[in-house]
Design a binder for these strands. Structure first.
Length: 854
RNA sequence: GCCUCUGUGGCGGAAUUGGUAGACGCGACGGAUUCAAAAUCCGUUUCCUUCGGGAGUGCCGGUUCGAGUCCGGCCAGAGGUACCA
C-alpha cells in the first residue's frame, strides 16, 4: 500500500533545505570558472498586496528556465524585486489614510511571504524596491548624468486637468472625457515638463531590432511601427493674400504622399497648432472649437476615435503646382500636434480620414492615382478612399508616373521652388517623464530665479521624499508641503524651489535589471539579460524605454553594454483567465461562492442558480480571481505551477479551472506512486539487455530529448504532455516482465530531474526516494544516449489523391523506389486505384506517400 | 480609428520547412475493484453514415499532388495606443 505524497509537509521541508543551502545564490564572475552565465529575469511585480495566478504563471515560467539552465551547468542569476512606485499607493492613501510607503512595504512583506511558498529558485540577496532611497537615489544620479549629456530637456506639454479636483489626471482616470472622481469634463493644461530625448535614438532603436533574434516577431513589429520611421516631404504652402502674423511664411506640412499633391483639396491644422492658437485669440467660435477638441482628453485613442470635426478658418493657401488654385485652411480634431508639423494637406481621394472629412464638409475629391486596369474616364471615389497601387493621372507633369517616381518628382519640384525638402519623420515622440505626484522618484533639480535650473549636487543625493505628507485633498502633496521644496540654490545660495514633479514609474523599470546585476564591472559580466519573461502588454512602452535607457546609460559611461540591448531573449506570456459568475440578483460572484451541480452552477449561500458568464481576464471588479494561497493550501505549490504551465501555450491566455487543478493534483500522486513502487535494489540492478528493456530505455531518452526541445522553445505545455505520456509508459512497465528494474530506475532517475524545473518539491521527494545524490535542485540534467533516439522502423501514411488510405512500415532510410512499390502493393490502396491510371507517386522521405490517380 | 496578435472536438489545446488533423490533459460515458463510497485502474469519446464511406481547423475565395499551416478578402475576440503597471 502506497502512502500519499503530502505537499503540505514536503514543500516547507524542501524550501527550508534550499534556503539553508543557499543554493540559488548567483556565483560571482571570478568564481564561476568555465560555466557560461545565464541571467534569467521575470518582469518584477507591482506590490499590489497579493500575488495573483498571473504572477504564478509568469514566475513559474521563469523558474523553469532558471532551474533548467542551472541543471545544464550555467551560472544563473535569477533575482527578484519590487516595482514599488505608482498611483495605487496614493489611491490607497486617499481612501484609507495610510501612508503610501507604509502601504507599499506592508504589501511587499505580504507578497514576499507568498513568494516563499512557491518554491522559486530566486536569489533574494539582490532584492530591491524602487521606492527605497538607495534605488531612487541612484536613479537620480542617472538622471543628472543624462542631463549633463544633453539627453534631458524641458518643454511645454499637455496634461489632463480635472477642473473640480484641481489635479492632473492619468489617461486611465479619464472616463468618457470626464474625471473619474469628480465626473467633471476634463480640460487640457499646458505644463512645463521634463523629457528624455528618446527620438535621438530612433534610428538605432529601429535598426537594432534586427539583431533581436530571440524576441517574438510581433514585438519587434510593434516597436518598429511605434517608432514609425517615414520618409516624406516637409513643405510650406504660402498664403493667398496677406499672411497672418503667426505664420508669415505660410503653413508647414509634412506628407508621405507628395505624389498626390494634385489631389489636395484642403489644409488641416491641429487644434494645438500655433497658428490655430493665434487665430483663436480673435475668435470665440474657434476658441469654443478648441475647447470642444480638448474635451476628449489627451490619449491618442480618444482623439482618433472621436467623430471628425472641422473648423474653417477662412484662410486660403496657394497650390504650389497649379497657378491660381487655392486651398482652404481648416482646423481638424484628428490632426495631432505631436506628429510631423501639426499640419497636413488633405487628399480625400487617397486617404480615408481625409475623405470622411471632405464628405462631411463638402470639400473637393479629386482622384490622382489610377488603379491598374482602371478606366480613367470611369474611375471615381465614393465613400472609400483608394490607397492601393496605380499610376498618377490628372496631375500635369506627374501624369503616367508610378507612385514612387511621382513622389521623387514632386519632391524635386518642391525643392526647386524652395518650398520644402525631403525629410524623415518619426511617429515616436520624446519621452515625457514629469509626473505631478508624490509616490515617485523626485526629480533632482532646483529652480533658482537667478541661476535657472540647477542640478542637485551629487553629494546631496538622494533627494528623499518627505514622510509627513497628507492625502486628504487632491493634488501633489510635495507641492503643498510646508518646507520640503524650499531650499537654498546650490550655486548662489539664494532662496530657491525644489522641483516637485516626480519621475514616470517607467523610468524605475527601465534599469532595475542593471541594478540587480551589481556594480559596473559585475554588470558587464551579467548583462544583457539572457531570458526576460513578462506580459505582452509591455511590448512597446516598457521594453522600448529599457532599450533606450541602456543605450543612454552606456553612452554616459554608466554601464558597459556596447550593443545597448538589455534583453537578448524575450518571451511574452499570456494572461490567466477564469469564468465569471453572476447571482440571480445580478451581482458578481467569486468562484468559491458557487459550485457545479450537474449541468448547473449554484450559488452556495442561497441555493439559487448562478449565471455562468464569459471567460475573462481575472479582475477584482468581476470577482473572478483565484487566490494562489488558497490553491497552495489545498493542492500545494507544485500543482499550481504545473497547472499554469500545462494546457495552454505559454504565449496564450490560460483559463484557470478547478477541475484542471484537481487533475494536476491527481497527476502528482500518480508520479509519486511510480517512485514508491520501485524496489530499493533498483539503484544497483544489472541491465537485462532484453527487447523490453531497450524499448523502455528508448522511451526514457526520447522523452528527455522532447522535454529539452520543448523547454528550449518555450513550449512548456508540450513538455508537460511529454511527461504525461512518459509516466504512462513507466506505469505500464511496472507490470511488464521483460522490463527489468534497472531500466525503470533509469527512467525514474531521469524523470525526477526532468520534473525539477516544473514541480521542484515533488522532484526532491522522488529523488530522495530512489536514493539520488544530494538535492535534485542542484543535480545535473540527464545525459541522452543518442543511439537510443533512433528507430529501426517508422510508419508512413499512404494517400491517394490527398486522402489517407493506409499506412506501411518501412526502415527510416528505405530507398524511395522500395517505399513506392510497397505503397502501391497496399491492399486498401489497390482498391482505390483499381481501374485508374497512376499519374504520379510522391514519396516524401520519413513523411508521407501520395499517389495521384486520374 | 491605428498597430499587433488570436480563432481547431463538449472544454484547454497538439500537429518540424506545407505532409496521418484532434497528441496530451479536463469533462462525459462504460467497465474493474468495493458491502457501498472515495481513491485507483482499464476502455470509449470530432460530426454524419445505408458501415462502403463522407464532411471537417471562424467565413468566402485562391495556390498546390497535398493547406490548420501559404496568398487575397471578410467576421469575431484580445493586447497596446505614449500619465495603469
Amino acid at each position: 500500500m502506497t502512502r500519499r505524497y503530502d505537499p503540505s509537509v514536503a514543500e516547507p521541508r524542501w524550501q527550508s533545505a534550499w534556503t539553508e543551502g543557499d543554493i540559488f545564490r548567483a556565483v560571482s564572475p571570478e568564481d564561476a570558472g568555465d560555466a557560461p552565465k545565464a541571467y534569467v529575469l521575470e518582469m518584477f511585480p507591482y506590490p499590489s498586496g497579493r500575488l495573483h495566478i498571473g504572477h504564478v504563471r509568469n514566475y513559474a515560467m521563469g523558474d523553469v528556465v532558471s532551474r533548467y539552465r542551472r541543471a545544464k551547468g550555467y551560472n544563473v542569476l535569477h533575482p527578484m524585486g519590487w516595482d514599488a512606485f505608482g498611483m495605487p499607493a496614493e489611491n490607497a492613501a486617499m481612501k484609507n489614510g495610510t501612508h503610501p510607503g507604509t502601504w507599499t512595504y506592508e504589501n511587499i512583506a505580504a507578497m514576499k511571504a507568498q513568494f516563499a511558498k512557491l518554491g522559486l529558485s530566486l536569489d533574494w540577496s539582490r532584492e530591491l524596491a524602487t521606492c527605497d532611497p538607495d534605488y531612487y537615489g541612484a536613479q537620480q544620479a542617472v538622471f543628472l548624468k543624462f542631463l549633463e549629456h544633453g539627453l534631458v530637456y524641458r518643454k511645454s506639454a499637455k496634461v489632463n486637468w480635472d477642473p473640480v479636483d484641481h489635479t492632473v489626471l492619468a489617461n486611465e482616470q479619464v472616463i468618457d472625457g470626464k474625471g473619474w472622481r469628480s465626473g467633471a469634463p476634463v480640460e487640457q493644461r499646458e505644463l512645463t515638463q521634463w523629457f528624455f530625448r528618446i527620438t535621438d535614438y530612433a534610428d538605432r532603436l529601429l535598426d537594432d531590432l534586427k539583431t533581436l533574434e530571440r524576441w517574438p516577431e510581433k514585438v519587434r513589429t510593434m516597436q518598429a511601427n511605434w517608432i514609425g520611421r517615414s520618409e516624406g516631404l516637409q513643405m510650406r504652402f504660402p498664403f493667398d493674400g496677406d499672411a497672418p502674423e503667426a505664420a508669415p511664411d505660410g503653413i508647414e506640412i509634412f506628407t508621405t504622399r507628395p505624389d498626390t499633391l494634385f489631389g489636395a483639396s484642403f489644409i488641416a491644422l491641429s487644434p494645438d497648432h500655433p497658428l490655430t492658437i493665434a487665430l483663436a485669440e480673435g475668435s470665440d467660435t474657434l476658441t469654443a472649437f478648441r475647447a470642444e477638441c480638448a474635451r476628449v482628453g489627451t490619449s491618442e485613442e480618444a482623439i482618433e476615435t472621436a467623430e471628425k470635426q472641422g473648423f474653417d478658418t477662412g484662410l486660403r493657401v496657394v497650390h504650389p503646382f497649379v497657378a491660381g488654385k487655392t486651398l482652404p485652411v481648416w482646423v481638424a480634431n484628428f490632426v495631432l500636434m505631436g506628429y510631423g508639423t501639426g499640419a497636413i494637406f488633405g487628399c480625400p481621394a487617397h486617404d480615408q480620414r481625409d475623405l470622411d472629412f471632405a464628405r462631411k464638409y463638402d470639400l473637393d475629391v479629386t482622384p490622382v492615382v489610377l488603379p491598374p486596369e482602371a478606366d480613367a474616364a470611369a474611375f471615381a471615389v465614393g465613400t472609400e478612399a483608394y490607397t492601393g497601387p496605380g499610376s498618377i493621372y490628372q496631375s500635369d507633369f506627374l501624369d503616367g508616373l508610378s507612385i514612387d517616381d511621382a513622389k521623387s518628382a514632386a519632391v524635386q519640384k518642391i525643392v526647386g521652388q524652395e518650398l520644402g525638402e525631403a525629410t524623415v519623420n518619426y511617429r515616436l515622440r520624446d519621452w515625457g517623464v514629469s509626473r505631478q505626484r508624490y509616490w515617485g522618484c523626485p526629480i533632482p533639480v532646483i529652480h533658482c530665479e537667478t541661476c535657472g535650473v540647477v542640478p542637485v549636487p551629487e553629494a546631496d543625493l538622494p533627494v528623499k521624499l518627505p514622510d509627513d505628507v497628507s492625502f486628504d485633498r487632491p493634488g501633489n502633496p510635495l507641492e503643498r508641503h510646508p518646507t520640503w521644496k524650499y531650499v537654498p540654490c546650490p550655486v548662489c545660495g539664494k532662496d530657491a524651489i525644489r522641483e516637485t514633479d516626480t519621475l514616470d514609474t517607467f523610468v524605475d523599470s527601465s534599469w532595475y535589471f542593471v541594478r540587480f546585476a551589481g556594480d559596473k564591472e559585475e554588470a558587464a559580466y551579467w548583462l544583457p539579460v539572457d531570458q526576460y519573461v513578462g506580459g505582452v502588454e509591455h511590448a512597446v512602452l516598457h521594453l522600448l524605454y529599457a532599450r533606450f535607457f541602456c543605450r543612454a546609460m552606456h553612452d554616459c559611461g554608466l554601464i558597459d553594454l556596447p550593443g545597448g540591448e538589455p534583453f537578448a531573449g524575450l518571451f511574452t506570456q499570456g494572461m490567466v483567465t477564469h469564468e465569471t459568475y453572476k447571482s440571480a440578483s445580478g451581482d458578481w460572484l467569486s468562484p468559491d461562492e458557487v459550485e457545479r451541480r450537474g449541468e448547473d452552477m449554484i450559488e452556495i449561500k442561497t441555493g439559487e442558480a448562478a449565471a455562468v458568464g464569459p471567460v475573462e481576464k481575472m479582475s477584482k471588479s468581476k470577482r473572478n480571481t483565484v487566490d494562489p494561497d488558497e490553491i497552495i493550501r489545498t493542492f500545494g505549490a507544485d500543482v499550481a505551477r504545473w497547472f499554469v504551465l500545462s494546457d495552454s501555450p505559454p504565449e496564450r491566455d490560460v483559463e484557470w479551472t478547478q477541475s484542471g487543478a484537481e487533475g494536476a493534483a491527481r497527476f502528482v500522486q500518480r508520479i509519486w506512486s511510480l517512485f514508491e513502487t520501485l524496489p530499493a535494489e533498483a539503484k544497483d540492478a544489472a541491465w537485462l539487455n532484453s527487447d523490453g528493456e531497450t524499448a523502455l530505455r528508448r522511451t526514457n531518452h526520447k522523452a528527455i530529448s522532447a522535454i529539452e526541445k520543448a523547454i528550449d522553445e518555450f513550449r512548456f505545455n508540450s513538455a508537460v504532455a511529454s511527461i504525461h505520456e512518459w509516466t504512462g509508459r513507466l506505469k505500464k512497465a511496472e507490470n511488464e516482465e521483460s522490463v527489468g528494474v534497472a531500466a525503470r530506475h533509469e527512467g525514474l532517475s531521469m524523470l525526477a530531474r526532468a520534473l525539477t524545473p516544473f514541480m521542484p518539491h515533488l522532484a526532491e521527494t522522488c529523488w530522495e526516494a530512489i536514493g539520488g545524490d544530494g538535492l535534485v535542485s542542484v543535480a545535473p540534467w540527464p545525459t541522452i544516449d543518442a543511439a537510443l533516439l533512433i528507430d529501426d522502423q517508422i510508419t508512413l501514411p499512404i494517400q491517394v489523391n490527398g486522402k489517407r488510405r493506409g499506412e506501411i512500415a518501412v526502415a527510416p532510410d528505405a530507398p524511395a523506389e522500395d517505399v513506392e512499390a510497397q505503397a502501391l502493393a497496399h491492399e486498401a490502396v489497390q482498391a482505390q486505384i483499381a481501374g485508374k491510371t497512376v499519374k504520379k507517386v510522391i514519396v516524401v522521405p520519413k513523411r508521407i506517400v501520395n499517389i495521384v490517380v486520374a
